[in-house]
Amino acid sequence: MNKWLYDFKIRYPRTVDQKSPFSPLIHREFYQINDCIFLLRNKTDLKIMENFSDSDWKRVLKFHKDKTGYEWCINDLSVNDFYYKELYSKEEQKDMLSVAMNVLEIWGNKLKEDFPNRKFCLYLSVTEDPFFLNLRFHTYREETGFIWGKGINGIDKIEQPVMLRII
């Protein structure tokens, strides 16, 4: 992964701000529900999750293994959804990587501001053919660690190349 990014010589040239077409990527709210932090796409999702019964939570957490797995599943966003193309030139790929890295930085800062007593893991996964960028995050919990379990060495369990930012 480092070699692949090095070949691109990423320098964060694209800044995502409120005037950017990518502002929907960053201008999202984080919500805390049942000791989980979620990046929800709309108020309907929030209302549904706030009304989960205890049995709903038990079922959801069992299906996703734990709260970390559930956050990982819900807090999933594709950068490609904001480009509306199927094939990308090397320059477009650089631009997309720059946008993704800016979004992770902004999300990380906002998460730390909103939840200063928590630790978070933010991920950028990359699929090269076809080129696809995905952003995710979850709370770092001592009892569960990362999405793959305890210890940073388990990152190899993730199939596609991934960048991890811990804040």
Rank of each mutant, 00 (worst) to 15 (best):
Y83Q: 08
F22D: 09
K67M: 04
K112R: 14
L46S: 01
F132G: 02
L111A: 07
F132Y: 14
K19I: 01
K19P: 00
W57D: 05
L122M: 09
D76K: 02
N42L: 02
T144K: 11
N75T: 00
K119H: 08
F63Y: 15
D81F: 10
D45I: 01
T15D: 12
I33L: 13
M1Q: 09
D54T: 10
A100W: 13
Y12E: 15
S23L: 05
K110L: 13
D129T: 11
L97V: 10
N75R: 00
R59Q: 11
L104R: 13
P13S: 12
Y88F: 15
M101H: 10
Y31C: 06
E143M: 08
D114S: 10
K62M: 09
P116R: 07
F38D: 03
N134F: 05
K119T: 09
R28T: 13
S125P: 03
Y140I: 07
V126M: 10
Y88C: 02
G69N: 03
L111E: 11
Y123V: 04
I37L: 01
R141H: 12
H138I: 04
K67H: 03
F137K: 03
E142N: 01
S20E: 05
R11E: 15
P24Q: 04
K62W: 08
I26N: 12
Y123G: 04
Y6K: 15
K65C: 04
